[in-house]
């Protein structure tokens, strides 16, 4: 699989994502936000960080980067697109995923390991999970998922909610931690699976997510 990790100015989990993908022997390349072509890649990763300083709103400015047209084309082509943390925020701002990530219910950044539930184990991103309860790291100040009731209802109905917090650390509507689009090829999630792939760092619950993506 050829993967692109998009580097926006202010991305800071880009190298972590590269490290994780290489751990899974994925042919991964860093791609600048100024590029306009992603046709060579099978999967696109939008990493965490503070793109453009997260000024105005997180992800709001990144979505106007030249690369985002190519990301939209990749979506139209049905390629897998994964937005982690800031990447999730960018995908919602860009309209590739519904809803919005807002400031945590209790203002302030939180970095912690949080128990969550794999609510849909049948997606391209979660199908290798055998247990429904996992623990993943979170690290964000604006991770409160918000959408109006109609959107939440349709997410539920279409089984688009992939991960839910067991302890709702940020006040997300419906405990939502990660969702896909309706087609099921775009995933956005606030937790950081790329931080949970090595035993030496104390958590390997992110591995199944990468294995699911690789498992064609």
């Amino acid at each position: 699989m050829k993967a692109a990790v998009i580097q926006f100015p202010g991305s800071n989990c880009d190298m972590d994502m590269m490290h994780a993908l290489k751990d899974f022997k994925v042919d991964a390349t860093l791609v600048s936000h100024n590029e306009t072509d992603l046709s060579d890649y099978d999967a696109i990763f939008l990493p965490g960080g503070f793109s453009f300083g997260d000024y105005l709103r997180s992800g709001a400015i990144a979505r106007f980067s030249p690369i985002m047209e190519a990301v939209k084309q990749a979506d139209e082509a049905g390629k897998r697109i994964v937005g982690i943390c800031n990447g999730f925020q960018i995908l919602t701002e860009a309209g590739l995923l519904p809803g919005q990530l807002m400031q945590n219910e209790h203002p302030g950044f939180i970095c912690d390991e949080v128990k969550m539930e794999v609510t849909n184990p049948d997606t391209k991103f979660s199908r290798d999970y055998q247990t429904s309860e996992i623990t993943l790291p979170v690290a964000h100040g604006e991770g409160r998922y918000y959408a109006d009731q109609a959107t939440i209802d349709s997410l539920e109905k279409n089984h688009q909610i992939v991960f839910k917090y067991q302890t709702n650390v940020n006040g997300s509507t419906d405990d939502i931690a990660g969702i896909t689009n309706q087609k099921g090829n775009v995933l956005g999630m606030m937790p950081h699976p790329e931080r949970a792939i090595e035993a030496i760092l104390g958590n390997t619950d992110g591995r199944k997510l990468f294995e699911s993506i690789l498992d064609n």
């Binding site: 105005l56 709103r57 709001a60 400015i61 106007f64 701002e93 809803g99 919005q100 807002m102 918000y146 959408a147 109006d148």
Partner: peptide, 8 residues
């Protein structure tokens, strides 16, 4: 286009 997110 930019200053607001119409969702919220």
């Amino acid at each position: 286009a930019l200053l607001i997110n119409a969702n919220t």
